[in-house]
Design a protein around this nucleic acid. Structure first.
Length: 280
DNA sequence: CGGCAAACCTGCGAGC
DNA sequence: TGCTCGCAGGTTTGCC
């Protein structure tokens, strides 16, 4: 499920029920996630009020009045569900419940358990190992064509790999990299260092546009619901290339029979989808 | 440092 | 129907 637009959708769904709420109970049923859930999690959070729910790249940061900050990552299959009434009995993959003084339950579910919940403190959060090397958030004003060009300069790797690298730009994943490259007309195989000037500008604009459109659509729902209120995201219906191998490129008028349509290739172990005619 | 495969997990759909 | 295989939205680690 979660790249930046899905995480932002989750943040927006949870914020109204978590912000200003006091946590009355934290139930951890599965401590074995991407990293072990801290043993003192409940002790650190219960009784504190949630000051704010923020997002940094694909991480959710829940800031507490006591100074604690819960760092949440949804991994590949993690999602959150809000229960305003008594929640159903937890299933095998319902690893955690956060209960608030308003009687709301926020349940964390993650079948593959690549997600994480860790603790830090507001005084040390900027030096946190998971956060300190992240590149700019593409929707922030720290990100534009010039900044992207600077970060790509001199790199020999294909641009697909560079955009997947969270140190270059933070928040893209496999779907939105393919879609952004398509929108900017850049081949995923192009050497990163050659994406400079106008080309970098175009790519930066494409990244921002794709992410903004995806957030407006409530993210992408391929297998899981993304929104904590159960609503499906529908950006998958706007995909130009992702998952569309052999289908017609939306920008090409050529016959699919002749061109073969959208191509798939594997780069660094991940599928990339692109159009050989429109992306150079 | 760069690049790549493997590792961590489970579920699902395709094909036989 | 039921099994096996490949693939899946992420990130770290370890090896050349």
């Amino acid at each position: 499920m979660p790249e930046l637009p899905e995480v932002e959708t989750v943040r927006r769904g949870l914020a109204p029920v978590l912000e200003n709420a006091t946590l009355t109970e934290v139930q951890v049923r599965t401590a074995k996630l991407r990293w072990p859930v801290p043993k003192d999690l409940a002790k650190s959070l219960v009784g504190d009020r949630v000051l704010g729910l923020r997002r940094r790249a694909k991480y959710l940061l829940m800031e507490m009045t006591g100074g604690g900050v819960a760092i949440i990552h949804l991994g590949m299959t993690g999602h959150m569900t809000i229960w305003r009434e008594t929640p159903p009995p937890p299933g095998r993959h319902d690893h955690m419940d956060l209960l608030t003084d308003a009687g709301v339950c926020v349940r964390f579910t993650d079948s593959r358990r690549f997600g994480a919940l860790l603790l830090d403190h507001r005084d040390t959060i900027t030096e946190n190992k998971l956060l300190r090397n992240l590149g700019p958030d593409p929707l922030s004003n720290r990100f534009d064509g010039q900044e992207l060009a600077r970060r790509l300069k001199g790199r020999a790797s294909p641009i697909k790999a560079a955009l997947m690298d969270q140190r270059i730009v933070a928040g893209l994943g496999n779907i939105y990299v393919s879609e952004s490259l398509f929108r900017s007309g850049i081949s995923p195989k192009r050497k990163s260092g050659t994406v400079q000037g106008g080309r970098a500008e175009k790519l930066a604009v494409a990244i921002r546009g794709v992410l903004a459109d995806a957030i407006a659509a409530g993210g992408t729902s391929l297998r899981d619901h993304v929104s904590p209120d159960g609503a499906m995201g529908y950006f998958q219906h706007q995909f130009s290339v992702y998952g569309r191998e052999g289908k017609a490129c939306p920008g090409c008028v050529c016959d699919v029979e002749k061109t073969g349509g959208i191509r798939r290739l594997v780069q660094a172990g991940r599928s990339t989808f692109y159009c050989t005619r429109r992306q150079r």
